[in-house]
Amino acid sequence: MKKKVILIGASGFVGTRLIEKTISDFDIKNLDKQQSHFYPNITTLGDIRNQNSFDSHLEGQDTVILLAAEHRDDVHPTSLYYDVNVQGTRNVLAAMDRKNVKNIIFTSSVAVYGLNKVNPDEGHPVDPFNHYGKSKWQAEEVLREWYHRNPQERSLTIIRPTVIFGERNRGNVYNLLRQIASGKFAMIGDGNNYKSMAYVGNVVEFIKYRLENLSQGYEVYNYVDKPDLSMNQLVAEVEKSLGKKIPSFHLPYTLGVLGGFGFDVLSKISGKKYPISSVRVKKFCATTQFDATKTHDSSFLAPYTLSQSIDRTIQYEFVKVKEDDVTFISE
């Protein structure tokens, strides 16, 4: 008999791919406040902020995979981060206790470490800089408190992915790849800064790996596809995938930041949001790396290299003819 697994918040980018990878091996159910485009037959509408809307759906479940989160940078009011990410987690755990569900896998984020840290591993001190990171860390604390109340019987896995990209995603990595592929791309700075990235196909395989190897205990993992690429190497990967040379134009860092400030002023005057800002320029030029030794020293093997992952995304988004226009928006 297949084990029963309820995914909470799986109608989006990561959840859709996770259902695709697990539905043949597990008895999967999805609970989300939005209907799933691809899996409506196994999706029930419910909001983790409303205990009564999902409590009964945990009856008879073996494991919860909690994906639901407020994660965009522009969420208003900011209290939503805490209502969903923290109180929502409490509500899920309360329902698990009432329905005697003892296993949970939770997707957190490397945002708990904060900005400009030097390759933090899972034991690095946390220093979240925004409401998303703060609320994810608070949710982790709620989960650890739940686990330690009965560690002899409970299983808790926390996975902290770096920025996730892949087919159908509309986020910062997609926007960057689109600009590079268009040939209308200006590199700000020398391009030698490195970025940790994670391909959605590998992330969901790691979640499935943990689901298949559940045991009593508590574990936390960073998820990053290694080795990290510099911005120059990323451009080279796009060139290789498209089979063409991308025009090379480097803009000095100082000019790039000044341009970003200019757009900041325009945004305040006009009330409009622009794709360029001083903060985004600084983030683009920063080295953002995270240690994932624990993940890759386990028996898990990522099915795709980072080079293959970028190529799969480039080919799907910018080369092949699409069968539909379904996309998922994230940061």
Rank of each mutant, 00 (worst) to 15 (best):
H57L: 11
I65V: 05
L242H: 01
T293C: 11
R280T: 04
L177S: 04
N202G: 11
T157P: 06
H148I: 10
H57I: 07
R72C: 02
E331I: 07
Q87C: 14
D190C: 12
E219M: 10
W137E: 05
D297M: 13
N30L: 06
K2Y: 13
E122A: 12
L45C: 06
D55K: 10
V75P: 01
L211E: 02
N50H: 08
K268Q: 09
S109A: 08
V265R: 09
Q87E: 13
T293Y: 06
V86T: 10
E323P: 01
G9K: 03
K268Y: 09
T305M: 03
P151A: 03
G114W: 02
N169E: 15
I246L: 07
V235Y: 10
Q315Y: 13
N130S: 07
H124T: 05
I42H: 06
I329E: 15
K268S: 14
P303Q: 03
M197I: 04
A68R: 10
K117E: 15
D311W: 08
D62N: 12
P247W: 06
N222I: 12
K240M: 00
E331S: 11
N41V: 15
D74H: 11
V5G: 02
R149Y: 09
V126F: 03
A292S: 13
V238T: 02
E140Y: 06
G12C: 11
E323S: 08
I65H: 07
L251H: 06
L58N: 06
P125F: 07
A68V: 12
S36M: 01
H296E: 11
V173Y: 07
E239D: 06
V321A: 08
N175Y: 14
I159N: 06
E70N: 09
